[in-house]
Amino acid sequence: MTRRLATIAGALAFVALLLGAWQLGALYGAISPIFFPSPVRTLEELAKQVADGRLWQPLGATTMRMLWGWFAASIAGVVIGAAIGLSRTAREYLEPMLEFLRPLPASAVIPVAVSFLGLSTQMSTAVIAFGSIWPVLLAAVHGFATVDPQLAEVSSSLCLTRWQRLWKIALPSAMPDILAGVRVGLGIALILAVVTEMQASLPGLGQNILLAQRSFKSPELYAGVVVLGMLGFIANQLILGIERRLLRWRALPE
């Protein structure tokens, strides 16, 4: 516990150091305030947005966009991943194709999605889901494919039904992989939420950042970046918390 506190304190001190250097640089004119406002200016802007409530709508829009796309991707990823992972034939046929699709940058499918769905929220959700499904899908395939053969024998000797095997043996044993994939997927979902907002002029933090940049409101721009950073951080921490709860059995004192 004390070690963990020390690590957190160290990390915070490092951030403070960077902010201090930034502030000093801005103060003595080493960096131009037009492109790079001081941290105090940025935080002032952020406080103002919180105070007059301007922050909440775009923050909510981006968060919901990210969550919907990610949620759809996670559910689909686990279901498809289970189907592929549990069948050797499906794995042999589909794995090469997955390996081809996976490294495809999701931003490359934006034009395709736009031509089918227009500059719409559905388009953005589809792009986010396409981009963030891969880590979940591949992790689920791996997780379901590597159920311990000894546990498979236990299931057989207990005459578990297919459904019981899936639910009681395969899913929990794939869970560590799935959760890791889901967490990576959430990061990708946030990136794509911002990118699609910028590309398709959809309301949210991404669009606000772009507009601020175009009108040279650099404090607003950086305030948006800071909020996005915090959003990503909090989302990641939430999933880590869920992981710790669900995978309690993994990190136990002997």
């Binding site: 000894q150 546990l151 024998e153 000797s157 929990p172």
Partner: peptide, 21 residues
């Protein structure tokens, strides 16, 4: 085929239990 009438105790007990339960 297996039957619940015949229980089997596996050699490798550490792998025969569900670690998450």
């Amino acid at each position: 085929v297996p039957s619940r009438d015949r229980a089997i105790i596996f050699q490798d007990y550490s792998k025969a239990l569900l670690p998450w339960r």
